[in-house]
Write a protein that binds this DNA or RNA. Structure first.
Lengths: 220, 220
DNA sequence: TAGATTGTTAATCGATTAACAATC
DNA sequence: TAGATTGTTAATCGATTAACAATC
């Protein structure tokens, strides 16, 4: 059975489906049609059915989708049925904030350690973790079976640290540093470039303003 | 002159161009061709030229693009030549982390205030700001000409707070709460859904693993 | 069974890439 | 001028939407 490649556009929509289905489930909704879900989520029913059918049919003709079942299945597709072991590399404000974020644990993302190069931070408690020096990281990654490294450190050191972590066996990097990491083909990188996001926001403010300007005759 | 709508796909790439051009500029590179830039950024030269031409030609045939000029122009397109006034709403770990992030200021995003509902935080210093109670927010937004609200608060209160802020005149929301905000057409929302990002990461780990499994005969 | 709604194929739309004439 | 490289049109590719037969 050949596995057809699922586009990242589809993958990018799965977490949102998952969230809406979770809410419906919590509200006690048992079944939902693509039509109803489309109204709720403001996407086309067609897209919903196409998206789900990438993974085989989850619905039933004449009935729709069972909310609980669909929720579970999308969770499995996203890998939320298995645990991941994370370390945070860089215990600055952002690193500490992520360590304190409870919600990841609920989805199976377990924060196992937090590291920093800065001696002043060593030994500091961050939620249930203690900031460790970078020298301890190799042993820790290998012994604790760490999957995912969260990079919350300055861009200057990100590439070098990423290379090391990959050598130690990490499989994925959640990258908050503002660089494009070069990694081997088998390593996953997910970027969160906050300043890029803020720049998009800024562009869209300007755009809406000039649109409004056009209506009121301020321009053109 | 009709303004053709620029697709969000293009806008989403601008910050990355901006970053690379900034680095080239700092390295003292004066000119660059779409071909050279394409090798550096790992995208097609065709896409680069198409993207830039959405905004009118920035290059010169036979020469390429002037790095400094192109950098400036993209900055302008992104609205980085004008200042934005931000407030952070929700002074938890993430809110404080963002307040401490120096790099936004450099691009004209000025953090003007930070607010929280939690009395225990009121008066706390976060970088150059002091956490204020939510009751002060209306006056502050109006008097300080605040453009952008950064929502770093629990999803339960996000919608309600967003509605208020919009009434007070905010133009854009940088939303870290895990909900889809309903806002009037003229208000800009840029979402940063961290858990969605982590779920995508998780999916891609599974995918790469099953790919590798296929090669090594572990599966299928 | 009749009605509802999926799963899936076909049509459309938009984004990316290729090609090349214009021009510096 | 000749060579280089853009700006732009045309071709391709992929993603979204529409339509409808299958089927619960």
């Amino acid at each position: 059975m050949e596995e057809k490649e699922i586009s990242q556009a589809v993958i990018g929509r799965l977490p949102r489906y998952f969230r809406y289905l979770g809410e419906l489930k919590d509200e006690g909704v048992e079944r939902i049609s693509s039509q109803e879900l489309s109204e709720l989520m403001q996407v086309t029913a067609s897209q919903i059915r196409q998206d789900f059918n990438n993974f085989g049919g989850f619905g039933q003709q004449g009935y729709g989708y069972n909310v609980e079942y669909l929720y579970q299945e999308i969770g499995k597709i996203l890998g939320l049925d298995s645990e991941h072991h994370l370390i945070i590399v860089g215990a600055g404000n952002l690193g500490q904030a992520l360590a304190n974020y409870m919600n990841f644990e609920r989805r199976g993302f377990l924060m196992k350690g937090i590291f920093d190069i800065n001696r002043a931070l060593h030994g500091k408690k961050v939620r249930n973790l203690t900031v460790q020096p970078m020298e301890k990281i190799e042993q820790f990654v290998k012994e604790q079976n760490i999957d995912i490294a969260v990079l919350t450190l300055p861009k200057a050191s990100a590439e070098e640290v990423a290379d090391k972590l990959i050598r130690y066996g990490i499989k994925a990097i959640w990258n908050f540093a503002h660089v494009d990491l070069k990694v081997p083909e088998e390593v996953v990188v997910e970027n969160v470039h906050l300043s890029d996001s803020l720049m998009k926001l800024s562009y869209n403010i300007n755009r809406k303003q000039s649109e409004r300007g056009a209506y009121s005759g301020k321009k053109g």
